[in-house]
């Protein structure tokens, strides 16, 4: 409020000053300074000098006109085939929308697109793999795991073992013998066969059974031969491994009969 009243007073004061200045007598004003005579007078006509007209050379004019910078030809724009294509597309689209069916399709099409987008976002947020829905295989790493590992339930161990022994491939024979033992243990329900388990998982699964020590021995033999890459296994070494396996299989069979 104080500021407003001050402003009003200042305004009144300024008005008073303006009035005072206007009423100041003429004698109080400064005298005008004497000015030079600036009246424009026409020059006297010079009738003696001959005015010569100067014209540009025709040749030079022609050269100027021939220069590219002076060619003011307006180039008319031409539509390309691509522009014409899009013009036709838009024309067709406009005509489509002009119909009643087109308008309905446009309206519901927008809603459908919004719905699809919403569902896609929800699925992505839920991390649902939708690639299978479109018949495409899921993305796999470049180093795909070997899916052709043996299925112990389908192998013909007798024939394969005989073949490996006959060809002197004792390393493979030890492997097949061990896999055969794993199958027999699985068939008797003593272990739960799963490809993700290690050999020592199966040793632990046997618990305090009397089968555990000989099976652990077989496991060690298999690991030394297979993971140790004992490709030059002798017949005598293989005979030891085979005898241990056969003895274990007999013990396993007797355990089954006792049960």
């Amino acid at each position: 409020m104080v500021i407003i009243s001050l402003l009003i007073r200042l305004r009144r004061l300024s008005c008073l000053l303006v009035l005072l200045v206007a009423l100041t007598p003429a004698w109080s004003k400064p005298k005008p300074k004497p000015q030079a005579d600036l009246t424009v007078r026409p020059l006297p006509a010079d009738r003696t000098t001959i005015v010569s007209l100067r014209r540009p050379a025709e040749q030079q004019l022609r050269e100027f006109r021939a220069q590219r910078e002076f060619q003011y030809v307006e180039v008319k724009s031409e539509h390309s085939a691509w522009d014409l294509f899009w013009a036709r597309v838009w024309q067709w689209f406009s005509s489509l929308l002009a119909t009643r069916g087109g308008r309905i399709m446009w309206e519901y099409g927008i809603y459908a697109l919004l719905l699809i987008g919403f569902v896609f976002v929800v699925l992505k947020l839920m991390q649902v793999d939708i690639t299978r829905a479109f018949g495409r295989a899921p993305r796999r790493s470049s180093l795909a795991y070997d899916t052709t590992t043996e299925d112990i339930h389908t192998l013909d161990f007798s024939a394969l073992l005989a073949e490996a022994e006959a060809t002197g491939n004792y390393r493979l024979a030890v492997r097949l013998g061990y896999l055969q033992v794993l199958k027999q243990l699985t068939d008797q329900g003593l272990i739960q066969w799963q490809p993700e388990k290690t050999n020592h998982d199966y040793v632990h699964e046997l618990g305090a059974s009397s089968l555990r020590p000989p099976f652990r021995e077989l496991t060690q033999q298999f690991e030394y031969v297979w993971y140790g890459e004992q490709n030059d296994l002798s017949a005598a070494q293989y005979a030891l491994a085979r005898d241990a396996r056969v003895a274990f299989q007999r013990q396993l069979a007797s355990t089954r009969h006792a049960a």
Partner: peptide, 15 residues
């Protein structure tokens, strides 16, 4: 340690 190691069968001792 798993139940394997130096006590393996002598026929398949480490090379």
């Amino acid at each position: 340690a798993p139940e394997t190691g130096a006590a393996a069968t002598s026929a398949f001792a480490p090379r």
